[in-house]
Amino acid sequence: MSAEQTTTLVQRTARTAREAQAARTMSLARALRLTAAKQADRLMGLPLSALSVTRRAISGEDVSSSLEVSSLMLLMDGAGDQVAAAILDPVLVTGLIQQQTMGKVMPPPEGGETRRHTATDAALCAPFIEKLLSGAALLPDTPDECALLNGYRFGVWAREPRQAQLALDASEYVLVEMTLDMAAGTRAGKLMLLLPQSKRVVVPVEQGGDTVAKAISTANLAENVLGLTADLMIGLTRIKMPLQKVSGLKVGDMLDLNLSSMAHALVIDGNGRALARGTLGQIDGWRAVQVEQRDDRKHTKPRRRASDRDGLDLPDVTAPQPGGEGLEDVGLPSLADMDVFGNLDDLPELPDMEEAAQAADSQMADWNAAQGSREDDDDTKRQNQAGW
């Protein structure tokens, strides 16, 4: 056997092994394909198959390119305030509604479908999307793909692409595109899933006899903080003009900003509050602001030394009182010369301790006797009042 024949045989063997391994592996695409067919038949008796399933990563800025006015956009609420989106084209929406209302799928008209979607369309299509995501989340072999699909429920119908774009605020997404065939070729629609990149691991657990998915977060505090976004605006100047003139502005009108320099730009938050001042410019073709650093270190260190008193607005407690008179000047004696205890020789002699104790016992005995006679008189008085 030649070297070329040996190489070809090894390649065929390796290719066969890869194909066998791929057939046994449960990927994300295969999980969605199997779940879509099963849930469509279980929920509405619809013969459905996935002709193709593709997956690619996109950034949060590219989400708007996948949102179209003619599509039905369903926002899905997930764990940890995550929001995903299911985008169904009009052909797919009409087929799902026809199967649930008429029991059969009709071929699309020749002129296309231009009907505007309603909240009823969203309510009829949302259960299929929920079951598709929850069922497929249990099948993939890798925990990352399970976490990508797990924990989503229908939240709200987005009427316009702008509403969906505001809700989809993650930095990275996975775009899954599925071409679904309905009723053996009667209709073929497209379904797109915008899934945020998750930092959770999902493991299947037994609960009440059923297998459910449990999500475990793996993101730490540093990753969560670095993933936050803050929207800041740059203000160059403020212009006052009548409301009538503002309403009459149109594309192409010019406004005089009356600026001679870009060194007085303000960094403004969403509430209109100025956070910092800087200079507006550009770096490598991108707009940039060089923020001025304010020195606030003088307020961060305690000022407790005697040398720091000059810069503090504090009264001088060591200074003499107004008038400049001391204790000697007003005729008061010095405390060092005062006799606090007086003449101790004039005090009487203390009695003997045993004699004092006997005198105290004698007084207590007389007091107890008087107290007992008083109580007996009270008892006799009560008995006479009771008629005894």
Rank of each mutant, 00 (worst) to 15 (best):
T8E: 09
Q11A: 12
R15W: 05
Q21E: 10
R24K: 06
R30T: 00
L32I: 00
K38N: 01
Q39P: 02
R42C: 13
L43Y: 13
M44W: 04
G45E: 06
S49L: 13
I58D: 02
G60Q: 01
D62K: 14
S64P: 01
S64C: 09
V69E: 09
S70H: 11
S71A: 15
L72G: 11
L72H: 08
A79W: 04
D89N: 13
P90Y: 07
P90C: 06
V91M: 04
Q98M: 03
Q99M: 14
K104C: 05
V105F: 14
V105Q: 11
V105D: 13
M106G: 01
E110N: 02
G111W: 08
E113T: 01
R116M: 05
H117F: 15
H117M: 08
A119G: 01
A119H: 06
L124T: 05
P127R: 07
I129C: 07
I129N: 02
E130D: 08
S134F: 09
G135I: 05
A136D: 05
E145H: 11
R153G: 14
W157E: 11
A164M: 01
A167L: 08
A167W: 08
D169T: 03
A170V: 01
A170Y: 00
A183H: 09
A183D: 02
A188N: 10
L191V: 03
L195N: 00
L195S: 03
Q197K: 11
Q197C: 03
S198H: 11
V212E: 00
I216A: 11
V225G: 00
D231Q: 13
D231V: 12
M233N: 03
I234C: 01
L236A: 10
L236W: 14
I239M: 04
K245I: 10
V246R: 15
L249K: 07
L249D: 01
D253M: 13
L255H: 07
L257C: 06
L257F: 10
L259T: 04
S260D: 01
S261H: 11
M262R: 14
V267C: 08
T279I: 14
L280P: 01
G281P: 02
G281C: 14
W286S: 11
H299Q: 08
T300C: 06
S307C: 13
S307N: 13
D308E: 15
R309T: 00
G311K: 14
P315D: 08
G326D: 06
G326Q: 09
D329C: 12
G331K: 06
P333I: 14
D337C: 15
N343H: 09
A356Y: 12
A357S: 15
A360M: 10
G372K: 12
S373W: 14
S373G: 06
D377I: 12
D379M: 14
D379A: 08
